[in-house]
C-alpha cells in the first residue's frame, strides 16, 4: 500500500491529470513568493554598505545560480531513476528539466556579468566559477542535442540520462570552485552548517527568493512535462480524447 503513490507517479495519464490540479496552486505560491521576495529585496532590504543599491542584483543572481545546479541534480537523479527502475515518467521529467535549467544558467550568467561590470570592472573573466557555470550551460545544450539527435525514443532517453549522470561531476566543481581557486567571485555567504555571513535583514528576502524560485521551477516544469507526455503518448487513446476535447 505504502508504495502505490510511487507507482502512480509512473503513470503518464495519472500524472497529467493530477498536475493540472496542482498547477494553479503552484502558480499562486510561486507568484506571491516572487512578489514578496522582490519587493522586500529590491525596496525594503537595506542597501549594502560597500556596493550600495547595486548589491540588490543578488536577490536574482544567487537564486538563479543555485537553481541552475539544483535543476541539473534533479535532471540527473531522475535520469538515474529512469535507468534503474525503467520508468518512462522519470525520463520525461529528466528531459523536461534541461531547457529550464539552461534558462536558469543563462540568467545566472547574465545577472552575474551585469553585476561584475561595475564591481570587478569587467563583464567576464575566465576564472574557475564562471567557466564551470559556462560548462554547465553547454552540458544542458548537449543533453538536449543528444536527445533530439537519436531517433529511437528508448535509446534517446537512456543516452541522455547517461550524459546527465556523467555531467554531475561538474556540480561540486562549481560549488567548491571559489574555495579551491583564487577567484574574483566571492565565497559563498550561505551555508547549511554554519551561521550565514550575511545580515538577517538581507538573509530573509534572499531565502524567500530561493524558495520561490524553486516553487517557480516546479510550476514551469509541470507544463513542460505535460507537453512531453502528450508528445510521447501521441498514439495513446486517452491523449487523442484529451486533445479532441479541447
Amino acid at each position: 500500500m505504502a508504495w502505490t503513490w510511487f507507482f502512480r507517479l509512473g503513470s503518464p495519464k495519472w500524472f497529467y491529470q493530477m498536475s493540472l490540479k496542482w498547477q494553479p496552486w503552484l502558480w499562486f505560491f510561486a507568484g506571491s513568493g516572487l512578489g514578496i521576495g522582490l519587493i522586500w529585496g529590491l525596496w525594503i532590504a537595506p542597501p549594502d554598505y560597500y556596493q550600495g543599491e547595486l548589491q540588490r542584483i543578488m536577490y536574482i543572481h544567487v537564486p538563479a545560480a543555485y537553481l541552475s545546479m539544483f535543476v541539473y541534480v534533479v535532471m540527473a537523479v531522475s535520469g538515474a531513476i529512469g535507468i534503474i527502475w525503467r520508468m518512462k515518467m522519470a525520463y520525461t521529467v529528466s528531459m523536461s528539466c534541461s531547457p529550464i535549467g539552461a534558462a536558469f544558467t543563462f540568467l545566472a550568467l547574465i545577472t552575474g556579468s551585469l553585476w561584475g561590470k561595475p564591481t570587478w570592472g569587467t563583464y567576464w573573466v575566465f576564472d574557475a566559477r564562471l567557466t564551470a557555470e559556462l560548462v554547465l550551460l553547454f552540458l544542458y545544450f548537449g543533453h538536449m542535442a543528444l536527445f533530439n539527435a537519436i531517433s529511437d525514443l528508448k535509446s534517446a532517453d537512456k543516452a541522455a540520462a547517461i550524459l546527465a549522470i556523467v555531467g554531475v561531476v561538474n556540480i561540486p566543481i562549481i560549488h567548491f570552485s571559489v574555495e579551491w581557486w583564487n577567484s574574483l567571485h566571492q565565497p559563498a555567504s550561505l551555508s547549511k552548517l554554519e551561521k550565514p555571513s550575511i545580515d538577517s535583514s538581507m538573509l530573509w528576502p534572499l531565502l524567500i527568493m530561493i524558495v520561490s524560485f524553486k516553487v517557480f521551477f516546479v510550476a514551469v516544469l509541470l507544463p513542460f512535462i505535460r507537453n512531453h507526455i502528450l508528445w510521447r503518448d501521441r498514439d495513446a487513446q486517452w491523449v487523442k480524447q484529451e486533445v479532441e476535447s479541447k
Binding site: V135, G142, L163
Partner: peptide, 13 residues
C-alpha cells in the same frame, strides 16, 4: 558536431 558539443566542455578542466 554533437560529439564536440558533448566532449569539449568536459575537456576544459
Amino acid at each position: 558536431i554533437l560529439l564536440a558539443l558533448l566532449v569539449l566542455p568536459l575537456y576544459i578542466p
